[in-house]
Design a protein around this nucleic acid. Structure first.
Length: 211
DNA sequence: CGCACGATGCTCT
DNA sequence: GAGCATCGTGCGC
C-alpha cells in the first residue's frame, strides 16, 4: 500500500485535514524497529486561533508550522513532554493538526520499552488472568495521549521537527477505517480559544485520550 | 472509577 | 516572570 503523498496534505484546509487524518496510520521506522498506529484523535490549530502557537508571529519554536503542508512540527510542553503535529494549510501561514491518540497496530513491545512500561515487580505475583487483563490495560494506555504517543513512537525534536512526512523515517498511510462515526468537541488543555470545536475523534474507539 | 496536584524547563512577554 | 496543545500518582469513593 502506498503512503500519503504531498497532495493529500495540500488539498485540504486544516479543519478538513484534521478530520481526514482519522483512520490513517502513522508509521515510524527506526533502527530499533517499526512502530505504527491508527490515528484516532486530532485537533486543528488555525492561524487566526489564539491557542495556535503561530497565532502571533513566526519564532524559533514555531518556525516549522510555517513550512509546507506535510511538514512535521514537534514541540516541548510542560518542560518534560513533547507533542507532534502535521503542518497544514498554505506555506508561510502557520497552521497544523495535533495528533492526540493512536490505536497501536505494530511494534507494541518496542512502544512499551520506550514508554518504560515494562513488567513491574507486582506483575510477578499476578495470576495469568490478571496478567492478561493488565497487558490489555497497558495496550490501551500506550498511545492514548499526545505526549504518550510521541514517546512510544520514538519521535523527538532533534530528529523529526521540521522534517517531511514523505520520508521513510516517519510517514502516514491512507485510512483503514471504511465508515466510522466522528465526534467533534472543543480542544483539551487550553484556555485561549477554548470553545472552538476543533477536536475530532473516532466515536467509540477505546484508544482515544478522553471522551 | 474520578479528581487534584506537582513535576519541570523552555519560550515569549 | 508567567504560562504552558501533559502525565502519573495518590487519595477518596
Amino acid at each position: 500500500m502506498e503512503f500519503l503523498f504531498l497532495d493529500f496534505y495540500q488539498k485540504y484546509d486544516t479543519l478538513t485535514l484534521a478530520q481526514r487524518l482519522l483512520g490513517c496510520t502513522l508509521v515510524r521506522q527506526s533502527p530499533h524497529g517499526t512502530t505504527a498506529g491508527i490515528i484516532v484523535e486530532t485537533e486543528a490549530y488555525l492561524t487566526d486561533d489564539p491557542a495556535c502557537h503561530a497565532y502571533r508571529k513566526k519564532t524559533k519554536r514555531n518556525a516549522a508550522m510555517f513550512g509546507p503542508a506535510g511538514t512535521v512540527y514537534v514541540y516541548q510542553i510542560y518542560g518534560m513532554h513533547y507533542c507532534v503535529n502535521v503542518v497544514s494549510g498554505e506555506e508561510g501561514v502557520g497552521e497544523a493538526v495535533l495528533i492526540r491518540a493512536l490505536e497501536p497496530t505494530e511494534g507494541m513491545e518496542l512502544m512499551e520499552e520506550r514508554r518504560g512500561c515494562g513488567r513491574s515487580s507486582a506483575e510477578g505475583r499476578m495470576s495469568n488472568e490478571e496478567l492478561t487483563r493488565h497487558s490489555a490495560l497497558s495496550l490501551r494506555h500506550l498511545c492514548n495521549g499526545p505526549a504518550k504517543l510521541v514517546k512510544a513512537m520514538g519521535i523527538s525534536i532533534e530528529e523529526h521537527n521540521a522534517t517531511s512526512l514523505l520520508t521513510d523515517n516517519l510517514k502516514i498511510y491512507p485510512s483503514v477505517l471504511k465508515e466510522f462515526e466522528m465526534v467533534t468537541t472543543t480542544r483539551i488543555g487550553i484556555t485561549q480559544g477554548a470553545n472552538l470545536p476543533y477536536r475530532f475523534y473516532v466515536a467509540g474507539n477505546r484508544f482515544v485520550s478522553r471522551k
